[in-house]
Design a protein around this nucleic acid. Structure first.
Lengths: 351, 351
DNA sequence: AGGTACTGTGGGAGCGCTCCCACCAGTGAT
DNA sequence: ATCACTGGTGGGAGCGCTCCCACAGTACCT
């Protein structure tokens, strides 16, 4: 029986010490080379690098994490009960951006689900254990305690979509306000004048901003905002259908609808069909997200695209900066810490 | 200046040692309690647990990993260039299953992208460093070197979808053969007789199995399999369109199509529309995956649902078993190590 | 000739655990 | 009484790193 943690290692993976011996230098020097310190002579560096290559040395992260008190990992926290969020392209696109940006670094990505109470409990434990250097928070609700927990634990975090206009955390968002404006202006330019809006959940700041954009576009074009043309939705298909039905009841003269999400638009479409309205002939329809649904709806749905992959990338940038900056006593301003990226209208035949 | 790794700890998180002192026991005893060893008296356990609670102790994973030579983490490797895979509900559903099953344990989930060569390089390094206890491999191609690498490093792995009939790795798959049969039998029962099949990529074993199922269903019903009704696709929309166009050219009398994926079906639908064929009146259409697209297509698409979330869960089960079993010299049979889960036909108005 | 100031380098200490050996009661068999 | 055992426990050693102090060597002043 070998010494102690012997499992499965036939000869064992090489350690720093072995590399040092091989290169004829000290442990500290190898560590310096591995970590790219400039205070190493070229000759020494070359010798160490050769030894590393010969031995196939790979640093042991656990040891590094223990000694250096950092983990080289960040967590993406997914509030999963929102199945909507999870199944939408939003999620995978963001992941794509996050992944691609992260692959430029040595950082690893952990996926943590914080859906159930048990999972949130576990997450709290996990964060308390400082097992990640930073956290990416997506789709956080206004009353979520998580951001405060993170602040308290002094763990750097970036949020996608501020919780309110007074958000203190670094954030990356798309221009919900501008996107909504684009959508409505597009409908106006198509000669529509009685443009309704089916909102998202009002406790989501982004949904609120879309309402603001809707209003602004109308006002900007000299129209009065008619409150009877605004109906509350919740981002779901069923919600969209109900809202559209209510709208048709109240305002049978409606000639266009801007829905706060593609899924909502799909629901609205059903209600319109059932009421015998043709799209776009009788009522034009515009969605938001430019998801797969938009392309496959009949007729294909005009929608507002958010640069989600780009948002994922930027979130990582921001987070890595936060992590790096944690050393000098933080408290720097929010200068470049809250980003808003432009949206783009994708016209299709529904409008 | 404090001792050494002093960053950010105001008083510092409690350590095992502190818990031991508080409970009036030795370090080893606390470790035993934390790890649920049975060789601890009830009184001692209670004392330790109290101390843990009072101090808010959370074990330091890095230290544990270093000492015990395990990581309590598994990786989900995503061959991301397959954007298809990534954006499809397949991915998020699987993730959901994986996450829910994992949340029963202390294991953490790492997401690793192995799209570009650089990423694969990094992955190899990562695995060589034994930074995970096990690996989940999804959507692996027949010629991927990854499984061999894993075998060589003796890292437990589970694959979703065997690479061939001779797969040696533990795997969890849905019943592609049976699912295809169901689809075709459904079409037969609807009175269709000239049923075409647009295949998936032939180098994907699951696609091959669907072809087999298609054939079997026809033969089983006493029909001869007409090779001119089988057309190669590649799981993409454009591929589906092309294949359908070719099919219509060659067999204008076709009265049903079984497509190897919903996306393929969406492409086929376009080609059918362009050719003026009505669905389902002239040609019935059945897809595979039961994705969001299926529900939102016009007309809604009959499709074969795979229990993907369940598959994710089972993969985790299998992997955890593999990890636990690694101790007794492996080499146990493949008895319960290759699972095939049942599919379900979801009829909609396209057939 | 003796400072002073570097740049490079070696290696001790320590990160917080797990593992295991040693040891101390009890308990039952001899 | 003596000799196994057994369940329960304490604590040394060590996992593979990073950090930092100490020190050699060289270069440039006084």
């Amino acid at each position: 029986m070998a010494s102690h943690g012997a499992r499965g290692r036939s000869g064992g993976r090489p350690t720093l010490e072995e590399v040092a011996a091989r290169a004829g230098v000290g442990r500290g020097t190898v560590s310096r080379v591995i970590n790219g310190s400039p205070r190493v002579s070229d000759a020494t560096r070359a010798a160490v690098e050769a030894a590393v290559a010969e031995l196939g040395y790979v640093p042991n992260t656990a040891a590094r994490a223990l000694a250096a008190n950092r983990t080289d990992a960040i967590a993406l926290v997914v509030p999963e009960p929102e199945t909507r969020f999870f199944a939408e392209p939003y999620f995978s696109d963001m992941l794509k951006g996050v992944g691609s940006e992260l692959s430029e670094t040595e950082m690893q990505l952990l996926l943590i689900f914080a859906g159930s109470d048990r999972e949130r409990q576990r997450l709290a434990q996990y964060l308390a254990a400082h097992r990640v250097d930073g956290v990416l928070l997506v789709s956080v609700h206004a009353d979520d305690p998580l951001p405060d927990l993170l602040a308290q634990l002094e763990i750097p975090a970036v949020i996608s979509g501020p919780r309110s206009a007074a958000e203190t955390l670094p954030s990356v968002d798309s221009d919900n306000y501008g996107g909504a404006r684009q959508a409505v202006e597009h409908l106006l330019s198509r000669g529509r004048s009685r443009i309704a809006h089916i909102t998202g959940r009002r406790d989501v700041y982004g949904a609120q901003r879309r309402v603001d954009g809707y209003r602004a576009a109308l006002s900007g074009a000299g129209h009065e905002v008619d409150e009877t043309l605004i109906e509350g939705g919740d981002f779901t298909e069923e919600g969209g259908r109900r809202a559209m039905a209510a709208l048709l009841e109240r305002r049978p003269d409606v000639d266009a609808v801007f829905a706060a999400s593609d899924v909502t638009a799909a629901g609205a479409r059903q209600a319109l069909r059932e009421a015998g309205r043709r799209i776009p002939d009788d009522v034009a329809l515009v969605g938001y997200d430019d998801s797969a649904i938009a392309r496959h709806l009949d007729p294909p749905l005009t929608s507002v695209r958010q640069p989600i992959e780009e948002m994922g990338r930027r979130m990582i940038d921001l987070l890595l900066t936060e992590i790096a900056d944690r050393r000098p006593l933080a408290s720097r301003g929010l200068e470049r810490r809250q980003l808003v990226l432009a949206t783009e209208l994708v016209p299709r035949s529904s409008s």
